[in-house]
């Protein structure tokens, strides 16, 4: 049982972005990925979720024993994969509540229909926990939301959908200190022996609240270093410069074509 990424290569319009990512996330584990801008972190998250713009040229992803890459994005999601987007898009005219009802309904067995009362009870419970006003549930999803509100709405969705593996792409950016604590609380509530987390972040401050089991550094489409929580602290101090010198930028990577380190 795990989300297992092996030697994953992906490109977009003739440009290779992921160059051999290998990573295994087991339920109960929390992994963090850090890395300079443009190193491919969001690309990894979108490739996992099945974004149609990317072409997989090599490698595999297996979720709890089932190969993921041939599946449609919605199937992957129903298999238990959740992505909190770095830039959540606006869905005009569709309220948070209706959107989440559709997503919840999609997870029920054929012919079964959602109990509206149970749904709202759960929704309001999670909204309360995330410090969101209940009236927010009737607002069109992400339309006119502030940056922080969008991130909270991502965590709300995660809480409602209870994924087995969640990828959080910079869910901490744009949050004020209080919001950061609330969001971290939401993430920590999902944590447990049943859920595996992959947290993409630039900042140690999120990791202060969500202490990861593993930290990985991505440079130029590869994971160039992995370690424990102490690695994040070191990066905070030293920056990525030393690693970039060692592993290059994606344009002139000395290791282009080589396998994944580690």
């Amino acid at each position: 049982m795990s989300l297992q990424i092996s030697d994953l290569h992906a490109r977009i319009v003739e440009r290779t972005i992921l160059r051999g990512i290998s990573l295994e996330i087991r339920p109960g584990e929390t992994h963090a990925i850090m890395g300079p801008n443009g190193s491919g972190k969001s690309t990894l998250s979108k490739v996992l979720a099945g974004h149609p713009d990317y072409e997989i040229t090599q490698g595999s992803v297996v979720l709890d024993g089932v190969s993921l890459l041939e599946r449609e994005p919605d199937e992957r999601a129903r298999m238990g994969l959740f992505l909190a987007f770095q830039y959540p898009c606006e869905i005009p005219g569709v309220s948070i509540a209706n959107f989440l009802r559709a997503a919840t309904q999609a997870r029920l067995p054929e012919g079964e229909s959602l109990s509206v009362t149970d749904f709202y009870q759960k929704l309001y419970h999670e909204m309360d926990a995330l410090g969101m006003q209940r009236t927010f549930s009737s607002r069109p999803l992400n339309s006119g939301f502030s940056g922080g509100e969008k991130k909270r709405a991502e965590i709300l969705q995660m809480a409602m959908l209870q994924p087995r593996y969640a990828v959080l792409d910079e869910t901490d950016s744009g949050l004020d200190i209080d919001a950061l604590k609330v969001v971290a609380g939401g993430v920590n509530r999902l944590r447990g022996p049943e859920a595996g987390l992959l947290i993409i972040t630039h900042y140690q401050r999120l990791l202060d609240y969500i202490s990861p089991d593993f930290v990985h550094v991505m440079v130029a489409g590869r994971i160039v270093q992995s370690g424990g929580p102490e690695l994040a602290l070191e990066l905070e101090k030293r920056g990525y410069g030393f690693l970039e010198v060692q592993y290059g930028s994606s344009e002139l990577s000395p290791l282009a074509g080589a396998g994944a380190p580690g």
């Binding site: 919605d74 898009c89 559709a102 999609a106």
Partner: peptide
């Protein structure tokens, strides 16, 4: 927007 919905498991 479509990808966002699909990612939430909505067919």
């Amino acid at each position: 927007e479509l990808f966002y919905c699909l990612q939430r498991g909505i067919p």
